[in-house]
Amino acid sequence: MRHNPLLMLSLLLLAPVAALAQNKDAGSNKKLYCWDENGQRVCSDALPAEAVNRAREEISARSGLKTAEIDRALTDEERAVAAAEAAQRLLDEAKVETRRRTEQAMLTSYRSEEELMRVFSERTTIVDNNVRTAQYNVGSLRDGLVSLLQVAGDRELDGKPVSEDMANNIRRRHLELMRQLQLQANFERQRVELDDEVAETLQRYRAMKGDGEADATATPAS
């Protein structure tokens, strides 16, 4: 097979240019990682395993500009709090929907008080589950905080310093415990409010039906 000399020469001339472009692209993608460790700012072109879950910034090695900011990984307790807050949002949405349905269709959709009470059963289950979950989270957080405080106290009694990581962990767990206690109080208040809402809805239903004694044996969801 005959080779075109001009084509071969062009390929030879272009090869270094292509390699240079590849090297340039590789260099432009290189980045630095910066995070806090024991109160000190640490930067490296490689992220060690012990820093993977820490909050960090990613900086372009070529431009020196920050390209990303990564939050630290959530703890188990923080994930539990986030789940509880998500459950709260679902509960609020369900409450709005329940009110809309009961106001618009009370006379036409429900033939009995028992049928009306089924509308509230899902919300009642959600609130009860939220109360139990918050109670469990509070107990778990409190036990963990007590253990950390005992360890920190023993170290101080032994004349050893309490590390900054341990002190930060104690502060973080305390804040999480306060948030979870607030969530628990909110859920317990909502459970009482739900009982009041059920009783009020029953009263309106009976008045709109014009029969105050209709299905009088039905009881609010509990």
Score class of each variant (00 low, 15 high):
Arg191Ile: 02
Gln104Phe: 15
Leu13Glu: 03
Cys43Leu: 07
Ala26Phe: 01
Glu103His: 10
Ala46Glu: 13
Ala167Ile: 07
Arg62Gly: 00
Glu85Met: 10
Arg132Trp: 02
Gly210Ile: 03
Asp128Phe: 10
Asn130Ile: 01
Leu194Tyr: 01
Gly64Phe: 01
Glu197Gly: 08
Pro16Leu: 06
Thr67Gln: 07
Leu7Gln: 14
Tyr136Ser: 15
Ser109Thr: 15
Gln182Cys: 05
Met1Cys: 13
Ala83Trp: 09
Arg62Asn: 05
Val81His: 06
Cys43His: 08
Glu193Phe: 01
Leu14Ile: 06
Gln22Ser: 11
Glu176Val: 06
Glu57Pro: 01
Ser44Arg: 08
Gly144Cys: 03
Ala207Val: 12
Cys34Tyr: 00
Arg72Ser: 09
Ser28Leu: 03
Thr124Met: 06
Gln88Trp: 07
Ala55Ser: 15
Ala18Gly: 10
Asn129Ser: 12
Lys160Ile: 04
Glu50Ala: 08
Val127Gln: 06
Val127Trp: 03
Arg191Asp: 11
Ser60Leu: 02
His174Lys: 12
Asp36Ala: 04
Leu116Pro: 04
Arg101Tyr: 10
Ala221Lys: 09
Glu193Val: 00
Leu7Tyr: 09
Thr67Pro: 00
Leu9Asp: 07
Leu177Ser: 09
Gln184His: 03
Leu194Arg: 02
Asn38Trp: 00
Ala73Glu: 14
Arg191Lys: 15
Asn29Ile: 01
Ala26Glu: 14
Thr133Phe: 12
Pro5Arg: 14
Ser112Ile: 05
Ala94Ile: 01
Ile170Thr: 11
Ile126Leu: 15
Ala19Leu: 09
Ser60Tyr: 05
Gly159Asn: 04
Glu122Val: 14
Glu37Ser: 11
Arg72Tyr: 05
Gly64Leu: 04
Ala185Thr: 06
Glu115Gly: 10
Asp196Leu: 15
Met208Lys: 12
Leu194Thr: 03
Ser147Met: 09
Asp45Tyr: 07
Arg111Cys: 02
Leu32Thr: 02
Arg179Gln: 09
Gln190His: 08
Glu176His: 08
Ser28Ile: 06
Gln190Asp: 11
Arg99Asn: 11
Phe187Gln: 06
Leu177Ala: 05
Arg79Gly: 15
Glu114Cys: 12
Val198Cys: 08
Pro16Thr: 05
Ala105His: 12
Val151Gln: 09
Arg101Pro: 03
Leu13Lys: 01
Lys31Tyr: 00
Lys209Trp: 12
Met166Gly: 03
Met8Asn: 04
Arg189Val: 04
Asp154Gly: 00
Val192Asp: 13
Asn130Gly: 05
Asp45Pro: 04
Arg111Trp: 06
Thr217Trp: 13
Arg204Ile: 12
Glu85Trp: 04
Glu37Lys: 08
Asn129Val: 02
Arg79Trp: 13
Ser147Ala: 14
Gly212Asn: 08
Val146Lys: 13
Arg155Asp: 00
Ser60Lys: 04
Ala49Val: 14
Leu181Arg: 10
Lys66Ala: 08
Tyr205Thr: 04
Leu20Ala: 12
Gln150Glu: 13
Val162Arg: 05
Glu115Arg: 07
Glu69Pro: 00
Arg79Ile: 13
Ala55Gly: 14
Gly139Cys: 08
Leu74Ser: 14
Ala80Asn: 10
Leu181Pro: 01
Leu14Arg: 06
Ala49Asp: 11
Lys160Met: 11
Glu115Ser: 10
Thr133Val: 12
Leu202Ser: 15
Met208Arg: 11
Asn29Met: 08
Glu78Ile: 03
Asp36Gln: 07
Arg54Phe: 05
Lys160Ala: 12
Met178Thr: 07
Asn169Arg: 09
Leu145Met: 01
Gly27Ala: 07
Ala221His: 05
